[in-house]
Design a binder for these strands. Structure first.
Length: 578
RNA sequence: GCGCCCGUAGCUCAGUUGGAUAGAGCGUCUGCCUCCGGAGCAGAAGGCCAGAGGUUCGAAUCCUCUCGGGCGUACCA
């Protein structure tokens, strides 16, 4: 419809005098449905250029349109309103055909081939295995996965990738933390009745002072910046269960580190799985060192004369590339900063030849990616293919107070805990329903206590109700069969409004995917569910004469298809009863 | 200091490439359950779209400045 109007208007405008070549008419959907289904402002835009009043120009355009381009299949009426808007109302026949198409496509309704034969890489979550995924990672995971699903729906072949680093100082601290807890568990088992002595001992330790006011206690051997979460104790207990006290003699923390990493990574995978996120690839930063990619990248940058040495460190001349200062790539210790492997990683991504490479980053990583792009530019790789979706932080509210989150300290809420409280469905909807660039306030008390107020239930409820109606109708021998339904019987205001809502779905999917904005889909689905409940309240199905009932059942079925497919993209279940 | 993001109803947020009377949910107030699922529906109240300039037929949307909030700005990851 939109395409037809666009090209028809384009042809009309080309026949008119003095219209600039290349002028394209814009089509929009009026906010007020009384104005029509589509509107164009082109008469107003041309007014200045043609030095005539917009209304006169609009008259001319409409006359020409009606004479040469008017197709009654699409357009029922054309009117001129306001300062010079041209409004088009589409014909019911067009609506019925689109509705038929929805019913025919079923589970495929909303899929398109806009991005056919294109490949996308979506890198997201990418948390290092030092602890369980937090609420913040949840937002990242939902955004990334939903964008991936949207792209798949418009035809892309998508790879979901998780980039992680299991080496370096943070992992050594992790290993030391586990060892300390391990020793603590062993000591407790030896002297099960001396726990009070242990607490006294901690009260005198430096760490205990730091922890004053917090419930967490740690053994004296605990690293100063160790990981305080209770999951460390769980890992230590498991090691005791399997190895007993044998590990007390271990000469370094390697075995503790390995055990921790393995457990945590497995847990992360399980958490993501529970959220409905399944990665295609876990990319280990270490492999970039093993393959030589890191040193190759450094050499390549050096060849372009963008590298120099100073104070024992290796610098990247980012000041020549629009940055205030240069950037260290290799520290004086000989150890690279994270930027170098990051660049090498993206070089690797570019070599894998994707049409688009999307990264999902929290706002705290905002400063990291420009360096990556600069690196790619220097190496003549097409950095335009790299896109970054930055999301703002999640503020967790508990009993009206903000909870500051840190993986190191114990007071974070894990993604698993969140899902325990509000279910994965609600978690996904909550994170998907808001624009990524807005801060997200997550009221735990509200989410926990008041599940009946959560908007996701509104969508699921509408779906369940549709299933229930169709089921009930079947019991009295009314079987929904789109092929037999006379859709022209759908003429109630609420029916037409619902049809118009439904048939927008494919276009919505395309625009959400292209804009990388899942929240607009959530907003749209809410509108579909609202239009359905309005229809439900003004139009009965069971009890109406057979033909009308069948037509309305077809409409209900189409609504169900739209809700189901939309929820599928959001990764949320569409239950048949609740 | 500099960079990025945000500022829309009491609260949390929508608002497509600039369009016609700025919209939802929650909360508040009115109605509506012999009726396909009331987790609902219909309606009311609530706004100088942070503020000031600019661009134009037309601005919540684009530009500049100011004020407020968040996040960065490491030889930490």
């Amino acid at each position: 419809m939109k395409e037809y109007l666009r090209s028809a208007l384009g042809r009309v405008l080309r026949t008119m005098k003095n219209v600039p070549t290349g002028f394209l008419p814009e089509l929009s959907v009026p906010a007020n449905p009384d104005h029509g289904d589509f509107a164009t402002n082109c008469a107003m835009q041309l007014a200045r250029h043609l030095r005539r009043s917009p209304r006169v120009i609009a008259d001319e355009i409409v006359a020409a349109f009606m004479a040469t381009e008017h197709d009654p299949f699409y357009v029922e009426s054309v009117t001129i309103a306001g300062a010079g808007f041209i409004n088009f109302r589409c014909s019911d026949r067009y609506l019925y055909r689109e509705l038929e198409s929805c019913l025919a496509q079923g589970a495929e309704f909303g899929r398109s081939s806009t991005g056919l034969d294109k490949r996308a890489l979506v890198e997201f979550v990418s948390a290092n295995p030092t602890g369980p995924l937090t609420v913040g990672h949840g937002r990242n995971a939902v955004l990334g996965d939903t964008i991936a699903r949207l792209l798949e729906w418009i035809g892309y072949a998508v790879t979901r990738e998780y980039y992680f680093n299991d080496a370096g100082r943070q992992m050594r601290v992790l290993g030391a933390s586990v060892r300390s807890r391990y020793e603590e568990v062993i000591a407790e088992e030896d002297q099960p009745f001396s726990t009070s002595a242990r607490v006294v001992q901690h009260r005198h330790s430096y760490r205990a002072k730091q922890l004053a006011g917090s419930k967490t206690t740690v053994p004296a051997s605990f690293p100063e910046d160790g990981y305080l979460g209770s999951y460390i104790i769980e890992i230590a207990r498991e090691l005791v269960r399997v190895h007993g006290p044998d590990l007390l003699d271990a000469k370094d923390d390697d075995c503790f580190e390995r055990a921790a990493k393995q457990t945590i990574l497995t847990d992360i995978r399980a958490t993501l799985e529970r959220l409905g996120v399944s990665m295609d690839n876990y990319f280990n930063e270490k492999s970039l060192y093993d393959s030589g990619a890191v040193s190759e990248t450094l050499d390549a940058l050096r060849e372009r004369r963008m590298i120099y040495e100073r104070d024992g460190a290796t610098w990247f001349k980012t000041s020549e590339l629009g940055k205030e200062s240069d950037t260290v790539l290799v520290k004086y210790t000989g150890e690279p900063t994270y930027r170098l492997p990051d660049i090498a990683y993206h070089v690797d991504k570019m070599k894998r030849d994707y049409d688009v490479v999307i990264n999902i980053f929290g706002a705290d990583h905002i400063a990291t990616y420009p360096d990556i792009l600069r690196g790619l530019d220097v190496l003549d790789l097409d950095s335009d293919r790299v896109e970054v979706v930055i999301y703002q932080f999640v503020t967790l509210m508990r009993a009206g107070e903000e909870v500051k989150m840190s993986t190191r300290k114990a007071n974070f809420v894990t993604l698993d805990e969140l899902m325990d409280e509000v279910t994965p469905d609600v978690t996904r909807y909550f994170f998907a329903m808001r624009s990524a660039q807005k801060h997200l306030e997550f009221d735990l008390n509200l989410a926990r206590e008041a599940s009946d107020k959560n908007p996701v239930f509104y969508l699921q409820y509408a779906h369940a109700r549709i299933c229930s109606i169709l089921q009930k109708a079947a019991e009295i021998a009314l079987v929904s069969d789109p092929a037999l339904a006379q859709l022209t019987l759908l003429e109630h205001e609420a029916e037409i409004a619902l049809i118009k809502e439904i048939i927008q779905f494919p276009q919505i999917v395309v625009s959400c995917a292209q804009a990388r904005e899942p929240h607009r889909l959530a907003t749209y689905l809410r509108g579909v569910a609202e239009a359905f409940t309005r229809f439900y309240h003004s139009c009965r199905i069971i009890g109406e004469r057979r033909e009308v009932a069948l037509a309305r059942m077809a409409l209900a079925q189409a609504t169900g298809i739209t809700l189901r497919n939309g929820l599928e993209i959001l990764g949320i279940s569409a239950p048949e009863r609740m």
